[in-house]
Design a protein around this nucleic acid. Structure first.
Lengths: 188, 188
DNA sequence: TCGATTATATTCAAATTTGAATAGGGAGGG
DNA sequence: CCCTCCCTATTCAAATTTGAATATAATCGA
């Protein structure tokens, strides 16, 4: 659904062909907020066209380049766009964190190995935290607050994860993962 | 990949048939950490069997029930399991938050509508936060620390999100999303 | 005892995602 | 000048996910 959302959002600004949509997405770093695969992009464009939410306006043929098909958003598409934006904001989506599943099952394997990869993961996450904070800092004075919120949100999320990973690592290192009846925090 | 991980993890304990795997997953609330669809489960089982990571040991035929095929993990499967667990912990996976994309594009639509759905979302998230905290509290004295970490992590993550949503909502309400050059926090 | 719902087990078509292939032109380096 | 790599644009097969259909039995209240 995100794919359709972006396509409609960008066609709202002006007519574009699929490849151009991808370029703009990269320019604006949308590819950091969603998976950007060419196959999915073209698939979503075709779908939207079939459904009548966008329509092809012209095909530019050059002898030296593949043909490009330019698309324009329709009134139906505008309606869908609004609906999709509101729907995505409204609906609470489960955060399926692949780490959670792996950790739940990690007791079956050698704890010292788990400890080691957790350390790698922590280092990686530290870099991410720093990177996201820097991106935020660098843009504080130059972008609209909506973009700042996104950047700061990303930073906060990864910081939350980092702290969680560190507590987890401490427990793995102390081989306490299987202890029962011991609260994580003294004051709970 | 999570699907294969769980299947191997559960077959590590003992032989099971696919439907039983699903039952155990629900029992242990694994379905809250990953998407559980019967289609995917059977597909993953078939794949693992093809690859030789698990093998069918017997087929129980009853006249009154569909046949069930019991699977057992192989040595290859054990190796794969360890590899997958470590890989999932190690590899940093982008958190593609569908909300982010919607918010980045929300400036194209009526801000009062955005404000309203954000309020719904906040209420929903508040319930989640409370729910996750309760789950944690209820289990503090009775489950291994590994499980507690998962529960508390979920709680923290949703709390982080809630606070972020509230700040965002305040800005939407004040129509400040498009302001440029104003830091989100006084002290940054 | 009838009808409705829930549990047992699996399968399948259709939708979607993934990853790579295609094919020609320009740019830069040795 | 040639070779390699990257850019432009799109397409496609294969892998995977989704959502529902299937078929029978047990359970439970009216």
């Amino acid at each position: 659904m995100s794919m359709k959302l972006v396509i409609l959002g960008l066609l709202l600004e002006r007519e574009r062909h699929p490849y151009e949509i991808m370029l703009v997405m990269k320019e604006r770093s949308y590819n950091q907020m969603m998976k950007l695969q060419m196959g999915s992009l073209y698939y979503a464009v075709d779908k939207l066209a079939e459904e009548g939410h966008i329509c092809a306006t012209e095909t530019i043929r050059s002898s030296d380049r593949p043909d490009k098909t330019i698309y324009r958003i329709t009134d139906q598409g505008r309606a869908l766009f609004e609906q999709l934006v509101l729907q995505q904001i409204k609906k609470y989506e489960q955060v399926y964190h692949p780490l959670y599943m792996a950790l739940a099952l990690s007791r079956h394997i050698d704890q010292s190995k788990v400890e080691k990869v957790l350390e790698e993961r922590i280092r990686e996450t530290e870099h991410q935290v720093n990177f996201y904070y820097q991106v935020y800092e660098e843009h504080v004075m130059s972008v609209p607050r909506s973009a700042l919120h996104l950047m700061y949100g990303r930073y906060e999320h990864s910081l939350t994860e980092l702290n969680w990973l560190k507590r987890l690592h401490a427990d793995v290192a102390a081989r306490k993962l299987n202890d029962i009846g011991s609260p994580l925090f003294a004051d709970s």
